[in-house]
Design a protein around this nucleic acid. Sequence first.
RNA 1: CGGAGCGUAGCGCAGCCCGGUAGCGCACUACCUUGGGGUGGUAGGGGUCGCGGGUUCAAAUCCCGCCGCUCCGACCA
Length: 570
Amino acid sequence: MRLTTYFVPTLKEIPADAQMPSHRLMLRAGMIRPLSAGIYSLLPLGWRVWRKVIEIIREEMDRIGGQEFHLPALNPRELWEETGRVAAFGDTMFHIKNRDYVLAPTHEEIITSIARGSVRSYKDMPQIWYQIQTKFRNEPRPRSGVVRGRQFTMKDSYSLDGSWEGLDESYRKHHEAYCRIYDRCGLKYFVVGASSGAMGGSGSEEFMVESDAGEDLCAFNLESGYAANIEVATSAVPPVGRLEANPPAEKFATPFAKSIDDLVEQFGIEETRCAKSLVYFADETPYLIFMCGNDQLNEAKLQSALGVSHVRPARDEELAELTGADAGSIGPINLKTPLPQIADRRIAHANGMVSGANENGFHYRNIDLDRDAAITAYHDLRMVEEGEPDPLGGRPLRVKRAIEVGHVFKLGTKYSEAMGATFLDAQGREQPIIMGSYGIGVERIVACHIEQRHDDDGIIWHPNIAPFHVQVTALKIESPLVRESSERLYTDLREAGFEVLFDDRAGLNPGFKFKDADLLGLPLNVIAGEKNLKNGNIEIKIRATGERRILPIGEAVEACAALLDELRKT
RNA sequence: CGGAGCGUAGCGCAGCCCGGUAGCGCACUACCUUGGGGUGGUAGGGGUCGCGGGUUCAAAUCCCGCCGCUCCGACCA
């Protein structure tokens, strides 16, 4: 394409609203334009990159036997009522006003509805069905450019199997395909164990790209290979255990102690001997929860431990009503209302604990959780902290922010049971189809790629997803020598099979063209300037390294081919 | 949904406190100039100052309401 006619509106100035480098560069390079919060138009250059990524995904999905579908985004609400997900999504799902339709935020329901009509026998499986399509989610707060939008492109696939071993195999295939996809897109990523959430299922992993702008936290240790989303991460932090002496619980006045730190400071109590008491509502049932010292409650763990779809902390007035005291003075003894009680494993069966007396200004010491509390279960409920020993070998954990670029998920039979998608097994018994669901965010791949590959001047595309392979830059195209040579280069490179962007604009200074070229960030820039052409030479600049090579014009095509092969390996 | 900030030309911003001719840089158009890192110049075009209401002789500016956008937090199956 020629820049004289191709629509690439680059920006010299940085758009004020964009914070992330990838967001700024996509705007500046003329790839996208914002339309509304979390909604972007893809301009020709941006769309070329999307198509490259999509093609890589398509090839890898086909390689594992995936079959491409194209499912409707407009869905009857009724279908979503069958699985209870209209309520589960709540405001996150878009509802059409003048007809009873919703805009699909994902496609488990549609897939299951097709399967229940047409998959009847174990002989019909396994199946891997996928599509690459626009998804709609009414995100309360879109952010980070295309990373969290209300409308976005997603590759979603679904596996249908007649056995749990079959599901394991479909899951493994997806895992492998995903690794190949990210590798081919030139992304540095890592895989973490992830929460299956409230939607059921037996296992799930996320593909993560480290980024300060990420919305997820991951705990990992590179040596041991442990890596998990903070929502499920555990550590080998030692349990508190029991003390020899076990005197009766004793109330004492703590008029100025509102926090664990206050108790530690004012009464010399060991932090780990404090049982922090929290009240949470789990699907409308209040629970009293005990944590060790200053350990943070991990709400995702609480949610899955209790098997509920929603948890929230009790409000101040609810606290007073249920316990008789305010936050900071709550505990297991003398509760105003009996509450179901659970606790973190770290303080399992501990004694000698200090906790609130359910009376403002008083605490109890020498609490034996087995004797004085009514704890029904101990769960892993705590948020791991940086530096804690990892659960595999006790090496220190690191906690980093990351962006989720993919998620593989063993769904099991939740949807097939809810919607009656069954098959007959070899014994003639009716069974629910065993499903998996797997997603990749296309715009997140592009954004993360730019996050990882850019400098102060612009983007540094990996050849596999660069919008074009090579730029030809004609300096002073008004000169007949430059015009003629650059036109020939443009033609020769295209005939050799390269995708070429030709900066044939007149009246622009070399500096201006170089800046634009660096911003667009194509892997190679073949520069045709009068100075070198007079000696029969051109110059090739490698975007990634800044290296420049001067060589005879006749060798340009060959050199580009060799350099691109090199660059593909990075 | 809580907290903060911002809406003035395509983009980035000033003007607002203290009411009285709507301004700057970039971009755009024409011509000249320059030609290896966003050249320099001359002359131009482009704005219901987010929307609605109010106060006033007079509102971008003061008051009320709404809408939109961004950031922090909550949420994110």
